[in-house]
């Protein structure tokens, strides 16, 4: 069984071609800008979408542990949850008519996951001569945190000749990275900050292991993209960008492409859906300008990297 918090079809921004993306629940990092905060905890969580709630009270009445209650806020009613009482039994999700309450994180069998992948698989083979082959992308959360599940699924997908991509921070042991590398076709690796202290400040962990693993997959001649969440005031400064470019260009096997993903604040909605313990600093982050993005790309280009 693998704990999944989402499966997205026609996924076109997570690797080559048309893909299906499987989101593993649980991540060892806690980035302040995280736009998939429901992927951080490995435990199932109750999500609540207030704008979908019709305030029917059905969930309150079925909650055996009395965790849920109707409360009034600024004149309108909503359902409040005392998370210390909630044991995520899922009764509220079953009864909720409007998908306002959902349990995020479902344990799925390999067969269930493979059945979903198979549904999308007809779109993997590109009929466009120049188009790239699609496939399956495992992302998270951090898939390497669940490497046993991941490896099992990677092997099964390999048996079916699906193109396999793993979207990861590489925050893991070298042994695990090697085993994953032996069983996947492409890595999408997040590179968040070159400075160890700042990396720890923003993500909660040091970048030593991450940089080492990037070097390792490069030496091991894996195919990989580097993806940089480009965040103003965090890692968008010239110094960090230059260091990043310098590091990447020094690698034996260069990344196939470097993707700069400009920070956006849409993820904020998601935090409101469960009493997120999310770092409040995240709310203060700013969206970078087109000019900043452009000059950062120029730096990568000047180091001979394929940046998009």
């Amino acid at each position: 069984m693998t704990r999944i918090f989402d499966i997205k079809r026609y996924s076109i921004h997570d690797g080559p071609g048309i893909r299906i993306t499987i989101f593993f629940k649980g991540c060892p990092l806690n980035c302040i800008w995280c736009h998939n905060p429901e992927g951080i905890s490995s435990e199932p969580q109750r999500l609540y979408k207030e704008q979908k709630c019709i305030v029917c009270g059905a969930c309150v009445s079925v909650c055996k542990r009395k965790a849920l209650s109707m409360v009034q806020k600024e004149g309108s009613m909503f359902v409040d949850c005392d998370y210390s009482l909630c044991n995520v039994c899922g009764e509220c999700e079953d009864i909720c008519p409007s998908l306002a309450t959902e349990i995020c994180g479902k344990d799925m069998s390999d067969d269930q996951i493979l059945k979903e992948i198979e549904k999308e698989s007809i779109f993997f083979k590109s009929s466009e001569g120049k188009g790239e082959e699609g496939g399956v992308t495992f992302c998270g959360g951090e898939p390497l945190m669940h490497y046993k599940d991941l490896l099992r699924l990677l092997k099964k997908c390999g048996d079916l000749s699906y193109h396999r991509t793993v979207d990861t921070t590489l925050f893991s042991s070298k042994e695990i990275v090697k085993e994953v590398a032996d069983n996947c076709d492409l890595f999408l690796v997040d590179l968040k900050h070159m400075d160890g202290d700042l990396h720890k400040k923003y993500t909660g962990v040091s970048n030593d292991q991450i940089l080492e693993n990037i070097r390792f997959i490069s030496d091991y001649e894996c195919d990989f993209y580097i993806r940089i969440p480009f965040i103003k005031g965090v890692n968008s400064d010239k110094e960090n960008i230059t260091k990043s470019a310098n590091f990447l260009s020094s690698l034996k096997t260069k990344p196939i492409r470097v993707e700069l993903l400009p920070y956006h604040d849409i993820g904020k909605t998601k935090h409101e859906r469960f009493a997120s313990t999310y770092n409040k600093e995240g709310y203060l982050l700013e969206v970078p300008s087109e000019e900043e993005l452009f000059s950062a790309k120029e730096i990568f280009k000047s180091y001979g990297l394929n940046v998009v």
């Binding site: 997570d14 736009h35 979408k49 704008q51 400009p262 956006h264 849409i266 909605t269």
Partner: peptide, 12 residues
């Protein structure tokens, strides 16, 4: 939007 997706109606 780059790596993030959600249903429009689920957003505030």
């Amino acid at each position: 939007v780059a790596g993030y997706s959600d249903y429009f109606n689920d957003m505030n």
